[in-house]
Simulated assay, not measured.
Amino acid sequence: MNQEELSLIYVWDAYCGWCYGFSKSLKVFHEKHPELSLTILPGGLFMGERKQAMGSLPYIADVNERIHQLTDAIFGEAYQDLAQEGTFVMDSEAAAKGFVALTYFSKERAYELSAAMQHAFYSEGKSLNDAATYAEIAERYGLDSEAVVEKFEDASSTKEAHEKFIQVQQLGIQSYPTLLLKKGEQLFELGGGVMTPEKIEARLMKILSA
């Protein structure tokens, strides 16, 4: 099996706390395997009836505490204030549009930009529904902030976000985060949840040796 036939697909949602917790493991694993290209697909967690105010999701605080205990992920004070106030609505379509807008100008930094989005929300308490957040991330990464905002607000980003949601559905993924290994035409679940980089590595070696 040639290395060119191996790649990674990561299905996440910017408003998914478990994805925020998993991001450190993914970063360590992917830095160890730069030869594996990484495609990131937003999953659309908070869409339709699931798109509601944080205050109507009473389990959030307990889940976040569990994520912290299992992954050491830090939930910032500004985010915790936002969750406690309760009126903020998590909109996965808007977040996916933001991801599309950022990566349109820097596809090679898709993972870094996805991590920056989650840091903005879970650490700084900033809205991923708001164009201003993407302008700030763009400036931090040396991108044209005005162009990113224009792309975010363009209908093409909505269209591309929904195309990515469809790709996730076609993969049969229903939980986030999910890391897949694409080996030729085959797909293998490689990691997710609270898996450590070492466990992901062990799973990779098991798949490759089969």
Rank of each mutant, 00 (worst) to 15 (best):
R203P: 00
R140P: 03
L180N: 08
E124C: 06
V63M: 14
G98I: 09
V89D: 00
A53H: 08
I60D: 06
A53K: 14
E185A: 07
V89A: 01
L143T: 08
A110G: 05
V28Q: 13
Q80N: 15
M117R: 01
A135D: 05
S92M: 13
N2C: 05
D81C: 11
Y20G: 06
F165M: 07
M90F: 04
A73V: 09
K32G: 06
E31Y: 06
G76H: 01
F99T: 05
A78W: 00
G17P: 02
T87I: 10
C16T: 02
L36F: 07
A120Q: 11
T103A: 08
V89T: 08
M1K: 12
Y111F: 15
S123L: 09
E93K: 09
Y104I: 05
E5W: 08
F29L: 11
G43R: 03
I67N: 07
F99A: 06
Y20E: 02
Y79S: 04
G172K: 03
E85G: 04
A132T: 15
S106Q: 13
Q167T: 07
G142D: 12
F29A: 09
A155S: 14
T158H: 11
F75R: 11
H119C: 09
L26C: 11
F88L: 02
G44R: 02
I60M: 10
L45F: 11
S7M: 09
E153R: 14
E198Q: 15
M117S: 06
Y122L: 10
V168Y: 01
L128H: 09
F75A: 07
R203T: 15
I137H: 05
L208G: 04
F121L: 13
E124A: 09
L143S: 03
Q167R: 01
T87G: 06
D72Y: 12
M205A: 11
E112R: 12
E93V: 14
A138C: 03
E201S: 15
S127M: 07
G21I: 11
Y10D: 03
S114K: 05
Q118A: 10
S25M: 09
M54I: 04
V194D: 10
Y134R: 10
T71K: 10
G191Y: 04
Y176K: 03
R140Y: 07
E65M: 12
F99H: 11
L179G: 06
A101C: 13
M54G: 00
S92T: 11
L41Y: 05
G192L: 02
D144F: 07
H119R: 10
A115G: 00
A94Y: 02
Q69P: 01
L45G: 00
S157W: 12
D91Q: 08
G76S: 08
M195C: 03
E124T: 13
G76N: 03
K107G: 00
K182T: 05
E112V: 13
I60T: 09
E77W: 04
K107W: 06
K206W: 00
H33E: 04
V168D: 00
G172N: 02
F188W: 14
F29E: 08
Q167C: 02
E108C: 08
L82T: 08
Y104N: 12
P197A: 14
E146P: 03
I74G: 05
E146Y: 09
F22Y: 14
T158E: 09
G21V: 08
P177D: 04
G43L: 00
E139V: 02
K97W: 10
L38C: 09
T196Y: 07
E139L: 13
S145P: 04
G43N: 00
K159S: 12
A14M: 10
E160T: 07
H30C: 01
